[in-house]
Simulated assay, not measured.
Amino acid sequence: MPTRPHGTGALAALFAGAMMLAAIPAAAADCPNRGDLDDIFCDSDGDLVADTPTDPGQLRDPSTIVFAYTPVEDPAVYANIFSPFLDYLRECTGRNVVYFNVQSNAAQIEAMRSGRLHVGGFSTGPTGFAVNLAGAVPFAVKGDAEDWQGYNLIMIVRADSAFETLPDLKGARVAHVSPSSNSGNLAPRALFPDEGLTPDVDYEPLFSGKHDQSIMGVNSGDYDAAAVASDVFERMARRGQIDADDFRVIYRSERFPTSSFAYDSRLKPELRDTILACFMDYRYTEDMQREFDGADRFYPVTYQEHWEVVRRVADASGTPFNRTTWERQ
């Protein structure tokens, strides 16, 4: 039977230690509003994300821009997918740009907080922690000229299983992804009880670590069911990693935003504005469009508006995006 991996908790503990060592700027004491942001950040305008520092000594102006994409699946796949975009970003910004392979959400968030990551794509759930703990400012999701791209929480079972509804899974082996995952943990905790299935009461969640590992675990019979993101499931089917006909979807939620693209709030404003303009002017390659369900561009969003449903799910599940929740993981 699958067991819960210890890597996420260990990384969270290391991250918590790094936060304890971080010096709190003198200006933090004068912050008129912080909300859920960590102590080294301020939100004086109330838009729920960290302000750009007013002290020039706190601004970051790196000669090499570091970019990372969420480690939802094989990081090497995304390094190749984003390669043409990074070439474009080098030309557009006039600076060197490198791809940073991150192995976990915790490592990605810690990298931005420490200043080693300047812009990147964060998974839906971890975006909230990146905002509050690392000073990330989400500005885009994948989309097209008409709309932003979303996904659903789905509960999958094998096609040959006897499970037909969520309540049928009481006592079953159900995979969640990781504590910070929206579709893989937070949304199930908030949404499933109204459907007659309560995590930690009707079943003990088994953390797989990644969406693809949950899906493959159902396919192999290690899990009876798994709560995963619909876009990951659909990408794996398109790639031929799974046969969608081997599964059944017994639950589908409302739409959530896909992974956010966010910059470090401490970037020098001139560099930040250049990066934002470069992102918004770019059009995806054919490979990127195939990989990202037909999306062809970065669609502008705000954390305050587009992540409202995600924050609502996190609060309803008792896991708001703050340091206390992070350190419990």
Results as ranks from 00 to 15, higher is better:
9 G>R: 07
11 L>A: 15
14 L>T: 13
22 A>Y: 01
23 A>V: 12
26 A>P: 00
28 A>R: 07
39 D>G: 03
42 C>W: 09
50 A>G: 02
56 P>H: 04
57 G>A: 15
57 G>M: 06
58 Q>I: 01
63 S>F: 08
64 T>M: 00
68 A>K: 13
72 V>Y: 05
76 A>D: 11
78 Y>L: 13
79 A>W: 01
80 N>K: 14
87 D>K: 05
87 D>W: 01
90 R>N: 10
92 C>L: 02
98 V>I: 14
98 V>W: 03
100 F>A: 08
107 A>T: 09
108 Q>E: 13
116 R>L: 14
122 F>M: 11
123 S>E: 09
128 G>N: 09
140 A>C: 05
147 D>Y: 14
147 D>F: 13
148 W>K: 09
148 W>H: 08
151 Y>D: 02
158 R>G: 12
164 E>C: 03
166 L>G: 01
168 D>E: 04
170 K>I: 00
172 A>R: 14
178 S>P: 00
180 S>E: 12
182 N>S: 06
185 N>M: 01
186 L>S: 10
191 L>W: 03
193 P>K: 11
199 P>R: 01
210 K>E: 14
215 I>A: 09
217 G>K: 11
220 S>C: 07
232 V>P: 04
237 A>Q: 10
241 Q>D: 15
246 D>H: 09
250 I>R: 08
251 Y>T: 02
252 R>I: 00
253 S>M: 05
269 P>Q: 11
270 E>R: 10
281 D>S: 15
281 D>E: 15
286 E>L: 04
289 Q>G: 12
291 E>C: 00
292 F>Y: 06
297 R>T: 05
303 Y>K: 11
309 V>F: 12
310 V>F: 07
313 V>Q: 06
313 V>S: 06
314 A>G: 04
316 A>Q: 13
317 S>M: 04
327 E>K: 00
